[in-house]
């Protein structure tokens, strides 16, 4: 706790976090901290515990042991919805989207949720359509290259990923956790997607943690890398020095 007192730009601190599924130690004593505005990539082989870590920070799973301190507040028992309201927003590895809505409607649903108007059942949605909300939707669609009127079920795989991220950004998060935003799309599109995400994140001063598989993407875009294997952090630092670590080379696949 002392650490977070004098570092005011510290956003997230994870202390000795553990998650066991029976005998499987998915996350096993992980500690790190993230400052405001940082862009961090978590990499590692399959089963390294990357997704579990995201699930723990976002509140989808509760830890077996350890602490998650977000803006000076301890989070272990906080529900996922509470954490979203506190500014921790996540996307999913396989985007589940609202198939019966259009892109615009989905974004408006999300913005209404942020404004805590989503449970109102007597007022027409159009009554909430102030200029700034419409503008916000247009801006998000523009920066993620989406067409507002398109039904969600007609989107391509890449567009679905982008809408998923756009929905997350529409909540104006402080900390954005993206679980493999580029999985399942062509390697050409990958750069594009990460590029868009980071551009918007920079603009909105959002802190981003991304789980990523593609080494080239990581090398190009992320100044800080957390390398995980078997539930533990093996390396935390810049990409260049990671390549220098002889002991990790075999895990990276050359």
């Amino acid at each position: 706790m002392n650490n977070s007192l004098f570092k005011e730009n510290r956003l997230l601190q994870v202390i000795n976090l553990k998650k066991y599924f029976g005998g499987v130690k998915a996350v096993d004593g992980v500690s790190f901290h993230i400052d405001k505005g940082e862009k961090v990539a978590i990499i590692g082989p399959n089963g390294a515990g990357k997704s579990t870590l995201i699930n723990l920070i976002s509140g989808y799973l509760l830890p077996t042991d350890g602490k998650i301190i977000y803006q000076g507040k301890s989070l272990e028992k906080t529900s996922m919805i509470k954490r979203v309201q506190m500014g921790i927003v996540r996307s999913w590895q396989i985007p589940q989207l609202f198939e019966s809505l259009t892109v615009k409607e989905a974004l408006i649903t999300s913005i209404l949720s942020r404004n805590k108007k989503i449970y109102n059942m007597w007022k027409d949605v159009n009554k909430y359509m102030q200029k700034q909300i419409i503008q916000e939707v247009t801006e998000l669609c523009l920066s993620f290259n989406l067409r507002e009127t398109k039904p969600v079920k007609e989107l391509s795989e890449g567009e679905r990923k982008l809408l998923d991220v756009a929905l997350s950004f529409s909540l104006q998060p402080e900390l954005l956790l993206l679980d493999e935003p580029t999985s399942g799309v062509s390697s050409y599109e990958k750069f594009n997607i990460i590029d868009m995400i980071l551009r918007v994140a920079l603009e909105k001063k959002t802190t981003v943690i991304v789980v990523e598989h593609d080494i080239e993407v990581v090398q190009k875009y992320f100044p800080r890398i957390i390398f995980m294997n078997e539930g533990k952090i093996l390396y935390d630092g810049s990409f260049d020095t990671l390549m220098g670590e002889e002991s990790l080379k075999y895990l990276l696949g050359g």
Binding site: S58, M80, I81, V84, Q85, V89, R90, S91, W92, P95, Q96, L97, F98, E99, S100, L101, T109, S110, S113, R114, I118, D164, L167, S168, L171
Partner: peptide, 12 residues
Amino acid sequence: KDAELKAVSLGI
């Protein structure tokens, strides 16, 4: 109805 988990992660 469409995606409960996504709705939760949007704070609904």
